[in-house]
């Protein structure tokens, strides 16, 4: 059962575009995939390593603009999409190092504030360096991927599959990392940094690696985002986006990949599908019943109210998230664990 379930889910996901022919739905699913990738990245930093990083959308922006600079009429450079996935990941990862190197000595609240500042600075820079970045309007006409002569264009279906493929590869990589030397080091740092150092872990290097790898995931999400939309502007990478990613983590359960995916899917669908859809319904209803308030309502404006309600509810009833990590069973060959007393204290 345990091995079959993921396979069933993957196959089912592969059939979604054949069953659901509505392009705007598929587009929403693809965007949700983008949120899953972003949540994967932030999960390395916050979930595994326990570093509270806000402003994570900055790395998303760096990935998106890297691709926009190198594959659009902006500078007349048109590099191929596929290698650019790696290039943008590397650039975002490098920025992760640049931000991390001087700040990782900070802990807790201080790190949160510095990363928050970084998250504010990046969109501001993009907005004000208008000679290169196109200012508030951003960059348009970004190249879209081609595969074996087939152009993706604005058709959401190929992007959906691209996201699915990249998410599956990422899952494999992340699962390997989680159950490895570096994954254990990250979690040890999260649990007790001083004790971790006494296990021979170079905590600075491990934290930098977490920051850089997490940022690289956001870089990949950025490339896909820019290619699918064919345009980028600073407003897509503001603090709200950072909050959305963090909300997905908190909702689903930090540090646990199934939880991270669940949280990102719920927040993503809510944001990209349910709220726009509900807005339509309410507006139609309002028009038919001639209720002006309903006809002009925009539920999308209430998304943070909805996040807030969800997060408060989760914190009250299930503070560990919907699917918290159950490390103990998953990774160890079940041999033990029966009859061990569960009295805590220490």
């Amino acid at each position: 059962m345990k091995r079959v379930l993921p396979l069933v889910i993957i196959v089912a996901l592969a059939f979604v575009p054949l069953l659901d022919r509505n392009a705007s739905h598929i587009s929403a699913y693809a965007d949700t995939g983008g949120l899953v990738l972003l949540a994967f990245g932030l999960n390395i930093i916050v979930g595994y390593t326990g570093l509270l990083a806000l402003g994570f959308a900055a790395f998303f922006a760096i990935g998106a603009y890297t691709y926009a600079f190198l594959a659009s009429p902006q500078f007349g450079i048109h590099l191929n999409f596929w290698p650019m996935i790696g290039v943008s990941a590397a650039v975002a990862g490098l920025f992760g190092l640049v931000l991390g190197a001087p700040t990782l000595r900070l802990r807790g609240d201080y790190l949160a504030i510095v990363t928050l500042g970084f998250g504010e600075i990046v969109p501001q820079v993009l907005q004000n360096l208008d000679k290169w970045t196109g200012g508030p309007d951003g960059i348009a006409g970004i190249d879209q991927p081609r595969l074996f002569g087939f152009g993706f264009g604005f058709n959401p279906v190929p992007y959906y599959y691209l996201y699915l493929a990249i998410i599956l590869v990422s899952l494999w990589l992340l699962n390997n990392l989680r159950h490895s030397r570096i994954g254990r080091s990250w979690m040890a740092i999260r649990e007790d940094e001083l004790a971790a150092a006494h296990m021979g872990i170079n905590t600075t290097t491990a934290k930098l690696a977490a920051f850089s790898l997490g940022a690289a995931f956001a870089g990949v999400a950025g490339v896909l985002f820019a290619a699918k939309l064919s345009t980028v502007s600073p407003s897509g990478f503001d603090f709200n986006t950072s909050v959305m990613i963090l909300a997905a983590l908190v909702l689903g359960g930090m540090g646990n990949l199934p939880g991270v995916i669940t949280g990102a899917v719920i927040i993503g669908l809510l944001n990209f599908l349910i709220l726009p859809q509900a807005t339509n319904w309410v507006q139609t209803l309002g028009q038919q019943m001639h209720i002006a308030v309903l006809a002009s309502v925009d539920l999308n404006q209430y998304r943070f109210l909805v996040y807030g309600i969800i997060l408060v509810t989760v914190m009250l009833f299930r503070p560990e998230g919907l699917i918290p990590s159950a490390t103990r069973r998953a990774e160890l060959h079940a041999e033990a664990s029966s009859g061990a007393p569960a009295q805590a204290d220490g």
């Binding site: 030397r181 040890a188 649990e191 007790d192 001083l194 490390t327 220490g346």
Partner: peptide
């Protein structure tokens, strides 16, 4: 005591081997 509370007992010892 400074164990890694939310890691398994086995993983705690495995982290100890990191060096």
């Amino acid at each position: 005591i400074r164990l890694f509370s939310f890691m398994s007992v086995l993983e705690n010892v495995m982290v100890g081997r990191n060096a």
